[in-house]
């Protein structure tokens, strides 16, 4: 209880005091996770639409695989990306290990299955609704995909939020490929892990509360934006 109180006081002090070290960590957390979600969106949403709208051999297997990959442990993703980016690995020459880029790559791999699977789920029901209309109008496959993505835009925002939630909260992958280097690759979750390892439980909890506030703020902003946009689209 004592430590909980200290944690709340500490969190309040961190937020209100706009602690520069904290701001740096928060900024990097947002940058890494938003970049990962952006890339996962650019690649994953079209892939989700393809799985929803087109019929091709291997599609069923892909859907099962993507759904299974949603449960991938972040540490496993971290190790996999580490082996790729290690100086002894195939992509070592890029020099990306222990940089924010490596963290973006790892989180993209983590987030992608969620984006693809949930987008597929959402767009499948849309496709079912509109399939005959699209065929009646003679739409080409590319136009079908674009239309599904646009029609599903409000639901897809929620899909991306789910992906963002996974990215911002995970610690295993960014710890391994980022190295938790101060001022370079230290994000909220790895800082929490470090404070825990140092036995600074109250400080770790305080950072956890800041992370919660951060996630809450992002979700709130998106919800407000979405509401406004929906009012425009539905009247």
């Amino acid at each position: 209880m004592d430590e909980l109180t200290t944690a709340f006081v500490g969190a309040a002090a961190l937020i209100l005091g706009a602690d520069p070290a904290l701001l740096e960590i928060v900024a990097l957390s947002l940058l890494v996770s938003l970049s990962a979600v952006t890339i996962a969106a650019l690649l994953g949403l079209p892939l989700g639409a393809v799985l929803a709208a087109l019929r091709f051999p291997g599609r069923r297997v892909m859907i099962v695989a993507v759904n299974a990959l949603m449960g991938l442990p972040p540490v496993v993703v971290g190790l996999f990306i580490y082996l790729l980016l290690s100086n002894s690995g195939p992509l070592g020459a890029l020099g990306l290990l222990y940089t924010p880029s490596a963290m973006v790559i790892a989180q993209t791999v983590l987030v992608m299955p969620i984006v693809v699977a949930l987008a597929h789920e959402l767009l499948s029901s849309l496709h079912e609704e509109y399939d005959e209309l699209f065929r009646s109008l003679g739409l080409r496959p590319a136009a079908v995909l674009a239309t599904l993505l646009w029609e599903g835009r409000f639901g897809l925002v929620t899909v991306l939020l789910a992906g963002f939630g996974r990215a911002i909260a995970e610690v295993g992958a960014v710890m391994i490929v980022g190295g938790n280097i101060a001022h370079l690759t230290r994000v909220m979750t790895t800082a929490i892990a470090l404070e825990t390892a140092k036995g600074e439980i109250a400080q770790a909890l305080a950072l956890g509360l800041v992370l919660l506030v951060l996630a809450f703020t992002v979700n709130l902003l998106v919800a407000l934006f979405r509401q406004a946009a929906m009012r425009l689209a539905y009247g």
């Binding site: 005959e132 209309l133 003679g138 029609e151």
Partner: peptide, 15 residues
Amino acid sequence: LSRQALVFQRPLLLR
């Protein structure tokens, strides 16, 4: 097909 059009039972309008 391009010289036909179909009206469905439900309007199926887009957002």
